[in-house]
Design a protein around this nucleic acid. Sequence first.
DNA 1: TGTACGTAACGAACGCCGTTCGTGTCAAGT
DNA 2: ACTTGACACGAACGGCGTTCGTTACGTACA
Lengths: 242, 242
Amino acid sequence: MSTTSDAHGFPPHAEGPPAARSRSTRGRPAKSPLSAEAIVDAALEICREEALDAVTMRRVAAELDTGPASLYVYVRNREELLRQMLDRVSGDVALEEIDPARWREQVHDLLERWLRAMEAYPGLASVAVGNPPATERMMVVADHLLGLLLAGGVTPQDAAWGIDILPLITTATAVETDVHRALGHTGEETVERIQATLSAMSPDRLPNLLRYGEELVSGDGDQRFHFAIEVFLAGLVARGSG
Amino acid sequence: MSTTSDAHGFPPHAEGPPAARSRSTRGRPAKSPLSAEAIVDAALEICREEALDAVTMRRVAAELDTGPASLYVYVRNREELLRQMLDRVSGDVALEEIDPARWREQVHDLLERWLRAMEAYPGLASVAVGNPPATERMMVVADHLLGLLLAGGVTPQDAAWGIDILPLITTATAVETDVHRALGHTGEETVERIQATLSAMSPDRLPNLLRYGEELVSGDGDQRFHFAIEVFLAGLVARGSG
DNA sequence: TGTACGTAACGAACGCCGTTCGTGTCAAGT
DNA sequence: ACTTGACACGAACGGCGTTCGTTACGTACA
C-alpha cells in the first residue's frame, strides 16, 4: 500500500494516522514501512491467499522483509493480531440505513455481508468463535443489528440477547464454509471416515438420520444460513407477539 | 516407576472390534498398558484438570510413561485424538425416551446435558466448532435430537436443518463458557481492553448498545443458552404452523 | 526346539512455532 | 556535539506435532 514514494521523515508514532516510515535502514527497495496497519495488511493478505494457519508471526514478518521480533513493537502478540484482522474485516461490512418496513430482510442482508467478508479470509472466522466481539468495528456492526431488531419490534431484552446469537450463527457458518473448503484437500479422507463410521454401526441406532438422509444433505450453505436466521427471527417475533 | 519393559508386555491388536485387550486385566490403577482407549482416557484427564491446550502429544505420552512417538500407533494424529475425546464425551449424554407431549422440554434437557458434558472438559467444545459431528456417539445424539423435533411436529426438512443449528448453539455456548472461565486469568486485561475501546469511541456510534447496556449484560450463561434454544424452537414451530 | 517374522515401543531428530532479550542504529532534542 | 529514546532485528529459548530407524519381544512355523 502506498508508501514507496513517501518522503522521508518520521519514525512510527503510536498516535496519529499511521503514515510512512522512511528509514532506509537496510538496502530495502520498495517495501512497506512497518506499522500496525501494514502488519495487519500483510497478515490479511497471507490469510486471503492461504489460510489463517499460514499467518504466523514469522511468515508475516517475512512478508514485510523483517524478522518476527520486529512485529512485537506494534502488536502485543499473535492473538491480538488476529483480533485486529477480524476487526478490520468487520469494517468492510456496509451498514444500510434502517428501514423498519424491511427489517427482517435487512438483518439477512447485513449478516450475509458479514459472512461474505469473513469467508474471504479462510479461517479468520474461527477467531470470533466464543469470544466477545468487542473490537470497535464489530461493536458498530452489533449496534446496527440491535437497531434492526428493535426496529422490528423485538423487545429490548430479547433483542439484546438475540444479537449474541445471530452473529454466532453467522460465525459458525463461516467456519463451516472454511472447513468445507479445506475438505477439498482432505475431503476424501473425511468422507471415508464418516462412511466407515456409518457402516460400522448398527443401522437401527440412527433410525431418523437414515430415514431423512435426503433432507439432511439437501440445500447449500447459503440456504441453510438464511434458514437458520429466518427461524431465529421468526422465534423472536413469535415471542414478542405473545 | 520402572518405566521400561515390565508392564508393556502385550501387543495391542489393530484388528477386530475395539472391544477387548483380552490379556490386559484392564489395569487402571497402577499403570495402563497403552491402547487407543487408554490414550483417550489420559487425554481427557489432562483436559479436565487443565485445559485442551495442555493436551499435547508429549503431555499425554508422559502421562502414560512413554514417548510421543508411541501414541501414533493408536492415533493417526492429534486432530483425531481430539475427535475421539469429543466422541467419548458425547457418549455420556443420556437419551431419555421421547415423549411427544414434552418434546420441547426434552430438547432443552438433552442439549443442556450435552453442554454440561462438554463444559466438564475446558476447551474441548472448540473441537466441535464448524466441523461435522460425524463420530459415532455424536451421531446418535443428533439422531435423538432429530427424533425429538419430528415428534414435535416440525417438518422433516426443517428438522433436518434444525439439528445443525441446535448443536451449533450448544457448542458455541460451551466455548463461551470456556472463554469466560479463562477470563478468570486474563480477565482484567480483556475488560480493560474493551473499556479502552469503548472510551476511545465516539458514543454516538453505538447508540443502541449504550442505551440497552443493562439488558445486554443481564442474565447468566444458562439463561441465555435456554433463551437461544427456546427462540429457535419457537421459530420452528411458528414456521410449521404457517 | 530353533529361527524368522511382524509389530509395538520409543529415542532421537526435524522443522516448525510464539515470544523474549540484548544490542545495534539512527532521528530528534538539548 | 552529545544525550536520549525508540525502533529494528539477530539470536536464542522452550515447546510443539510428527517421522524415521532401531530395538525388543511374542508368535508362528519349520
